[in-house]
Each structure stands twice: as C-alpha cells, then as structure tokens.
Computed example of a mutant assay.
Amino acid sequence: MSERQTAAGPGNKARARASIAIALFLALLAALFLWQPDNLYLWIKALHLIAVMSWMAALLYMPRLFIYHTDAAPGSEQSETFKVMEQRLLKVIMNPAMMITWVLGLYLAWRFYGFQGGWLHAKLLLVVILTGVHVLFARAVRAFGRDENTRSARYWRLMNEAPTLLMILIVIMAVVKPF
C-alpha cells in the first residue's frame, strides 16, 4: 500500500524536489549572468514570467483550499489534510515563487528601465498590494493550522478574486504601459 500524501515521507520528498527545482532555476540564472548573452533581457523576462505564473497559480489555489477547509470540522481528518496542503503550497510554491518574482522584477526594473515610467510605478504598487494578499494568505495558513480561522467561506470566495483583479491590472501596466 502506498504512503498517504499527508504523511511526512511524501512531504519530505516534495520539499526535496522543490529544493532541487529552485536550485536548478538559480543555477540557470547564475549561468545566464556569467554568460551575458545578447538577449539577457529576454531570458530574465522569461524566468520572471515563469515565477509570476507559479506565484499566481498558488495565489489562485490557496483561497479555494480555505473555502473547503472552512467547511471541515476542526481536528477532523479532512481538516488535517487541508492543513498539510496549505502548508506545502505556501512553503514549496508560493513563497519561493514570490521571492523569485520580486528579485527578477526589481532587476528588470532597475537594469532595463531605470525605475522610470508611471506605468512601472503603478505596476510596482500593484505588486506590493499583491504581496499584501500573499501575506494575508500566509497568516490564514497559520490560523487554520491552529484551528483558529474566523473567516467564512464567503469571505474566502471574495478573497479568491483579489489576486485575479490585481493580476489583470498588473498585466495591463506591463504590456500596455498606459502612462
């Protein structure tokens, strides 16, 4: 019989795989900076977009977990499973993706745009707000972990929309550059 995914073994394996993936990502980044290809901007932008997509996927999935977790009885097997899922999503995907997004985004803003442009300032403000949503979700993971969630499923349904709305505005700022 296979080991339950909520057990420590699969969690450690997932953490190891995520660590290897992050290490490979960072090695690729280091190689690019050493190599200095003519199209470095495009490479950094591609890696930034990969990190953004990973971060957004996690930000869009986390409140869905909260909605279902809200309906689970504290201490139940279902609630304990959600705790593991939320913790792994936060630690293995959400946090690393956010950090990589920020580092590469700030590098692009500094190196290729000189932090100039109203669109860039607006985009950075929206990313700061998105990071605030991330922090709110991280705090909720800790509250659910202690069986202290005070929010309703309806609240989490509404919060599920926040990352989407921010993402739309951020993409418009980055692509259209309206000002």
Rank of each mutant, 00 (worst) to 15 (best):
R139A: 03
M56H: 05
P178L: 07
L32W: 00
A7P: 02
N160T: 11
M56R: 03
T70R: 09
A143F: 13
I172S: 05
W110I: 14
I168Y: 04
G145C: 03
Y113D: 14
A122T: 04
L26C: 12
M1P: 03
I168P: 02
D38L: 13
Y155S: 09
Y155Q: 05
L169F: 14
A57I: 08
L125F: 14
R146G: 09
G145P: 05
M173K: 02
L47T: 05
R111N: 14
V135S: 04
T6G: 00
L126T: 01
K91W: 08
W119L: 01
M167D: 02
E86H: 03
L65G: 03
I22L: 13
P96A: 07
M98D: 03
N160P: 03
A72W: 00
A174V: 04
I129D: 04
I168Q: 05
M173D: 00
P178E: 06
R88H: 08
F115L: 13
A31R: 11
S54Q: 13
L169N: 02
H69A: 15
F66I: 05
F66C: 05
K83W: 01
E3F: 14
F112K: 05
Q78F: 06
R157V: 09
A27G: 11
Y41H: 10
L29F: 07
V128T: 15
E161F: 07
S19R: 10
S54V: 12
L120A: 00
A109Y: 04
S152H: 01
V135C: 06
K13W: 12
W35F: 10
T101I: 04
L90V: 04
A162E: 01
I44K: 01
E148T: 08
L24Y: 00
L106A: 08
E148D: 11
V84G: 00
N149Q: 02
W102E: 03
